[in-house]
Design a protein around this nucleic acid. Structure first.
Length: 226
DNA sequence: AAGGCGATTGGCT
DNA sequence: GCCAATCGCCTTG
């Protein structure tokens, strides 16, 4: 699939200057391009914003890790988690609020060969089905934290180190579903996960599971239960 | 200074 | 369905 089929314009920065739970459903059907790969978003989650969101990385204030989330809208917030995965967000609202939309899943619509080579064991529909899978398919890494996703589309193509959020084809409100966010341990009722109903690239929902204590922590000095 | 645990994934039962 | 992998961040002592 060639780049020529991506005829859509870039989303303006003003698109992101709203609370993340308003931006999130509007991102469904839009396209994120990075290098030669493009992904059409089918599932997103909103975090942070003007009010209190205990599930957001920004809940306890600004730190070196979450600094980008407090910065200008339209930039990528890429974080490292579970010691092995990267997840990508788009920063929302003007500076200082700490608000972003997690990109949870999508469909690869350009650069299929490149995405397949990055995730060689995955079926096509699973290439970007999950937040860490999506970042691998797009080639997003720690170094892309803070990258500006608002830029003009160049007829010559996209340089490898750039990202662009395209208008794509926003979906009809009737096909948008919403529900609790995946895998969060707090604010379990906040319905800030949004997805396209019936789309095969939407990831399976998982509730938060408290982790069992490590073997070392339980076997040393543990009093046997009676 | 130390330990708990995470906006997850893939492999195995 | 269950669980290990793997490490940086943040809380607590």
């Amino acid at each position: 699939m060639g780049r020529g089929e991506l005829s859509s314009a870039a989303l303006p920065r003003s698109f992101f200057d709203r609370p993340s739970h308003e931006v999130a459903p509007d991102l469904l059907g839009r396209v994120l391009v990075h290098g030669s790969v493009a992904v059409r978003l089918t599932e997103v989650e909103a975090y942070g914003g003007p009010g209190e969101d205990p599930a957001a990385h920004t809940y306890r204030g600004r730190t070196p890790r979450n600094a980008v989330m407090f910065g200008p809208p339209g930039h990528l917030y890429v974080y490292f988690t579970y010691g092995m995965h990267f997840c990508a967000n788009l920063v929302c609202l003007s500076e200082g609020f700490g608000s972003a939309v997690l990109l949870r899943a999508g469909e690869v619509v350009a650069g299929l060969d490149e995405a397949r080579s990055r995730r060689s064991k995955a079926k096509d529909r699973d290439l970007a089905r999950g937040p860490a899978r999506l970042t691998v398919a797009l080639g997003l890494l720690r170094e892309h934290n803070g990258l500006d996703a608002v830029r003009e589309v160049s007829p010559a193509g996209w340089p490898r180190q750039s990202a662009t959020m395209l208008e794509g084809r926003p979906v009809l409100p009737e096909v948008i579903r919403s529900g609790p966010r995946t895998g969060v341990s707090t604010a379990k009722e906040t319905p800030w996960r949004f997805w396209i109903d019936g789309d095969p690239s939407v990831s399976p929902y998982r509730a938060h599971v408290p982790r069992r204590r490590s073997v070392a922590a339980t076997s040393v000095g543990e009093v046997p239960s009676s």
